[in-house]
């Protein structure tokens, strides 16, 4: 594992910890898109089916279990927790995420590495992850004001994607057989979606001001 990959996994982990911290400390999920969280839960559940068949490393197994467990816990909290669910901004979270699921599944049936059940689900999870942040970004845009922890959550998620791109560049030059087109192209698309958010995040950081997204 190279340093970029590790940095990517760690920023991904931090983003989830920041989100859990926000929900736990404020007993509120305001500003968080339940739809994005449900999509992530689906992404992890479909991608990590290999937990049942392949062993790569302890690190790999633990991280996968953490991602599945935390995403399910967050969805559970936002839907079922007595206090937390009341702060969910349902009227701002109107993105039609079923459309994303249908479109990415259709793409996975057309473009895959191998025509097997597992590989098609793997491709689906990669495509779905690329666009899963959209309901969250739309929600931030709508509410305009972004609270500190929600802003940091999205920032770390974006950083995770950026580090993965550096990781692929590194692997491309250091490993003879590293060509994972589906993951790399989807990863580029996914990172590009954060560009606008990053722009405003850095401006607010530079000016030491509260993060605000233009309407």
């Amino acid at each position: 594992m190279n340093i970029f990959r590790l940095a990517g996994d760690m920023t991904h982990l931090i983003s989830i910890l920041v989100l859990l911290l926000k929900i736990y400390a404020t007993k509120s999920c305001s500003g968080i898109s339940l739809k994005t969280q449900e999509l992530y839960a689906l992404v992890f559940l479909t991608r990590y089916l290999d937990l049942l068949t392949d062993f790569i490393s302890i690190y790999n197994t633990v991280m996968k279990l953490v991602f599945i467990g935390s995403s399910l816990a967050i969805v559970w909290c936002m839907r079922r927790h007595r206090v937390v669910r009341r702060s969910y901004d349902k009227e701002l979270d109107t993105f039609r995420h079923y459309f994303l699921i249908a479109a990415t599944f259709a793409l996975a049936v057309l473009v895959y590495e191998k025509f097997t059940f597992r590989e098609i689900l793997w491709a689906f999870s990669i495509y779905l992850e690329a666009v899963a942040i959209l309901p969250q970004l739309v929600m931030l845009q709508r509410s305009g004001n972004v609270d500190n922890l929600t802003g940091k959550y999205v920032f770390f998620l974006g950083a995770y994607r950026a580090f993965y791109i550096l990781n692929w560049i590194y692997r491309y030059f250091t490993e003879a057989r590293f060509t994972r087109w589906i993951a790399c192209v989807s990863g580029l698309v996914q990172t590009a979606l954060y560009a606008d958010f990053f722009y405003y995040y850095f401006i607010s950081w530079k000016n030491n001001a509260k993060l605000k997204l233009p309407a």
Binding site: R5, D9, H12, D50, D54, I56, S57, N60, M63, K64, F67, E113, K114, W122, Y164, N167, R177, F178, A183
Partner: peptide
């Protein structure tokens, strides 16, 4: 012939 390398990324 083409055995793809293991999917070791998360």
């Amino acid at each position: 012939p083409s055995s793809s390398p293991p999917k070791d990324e998360l």
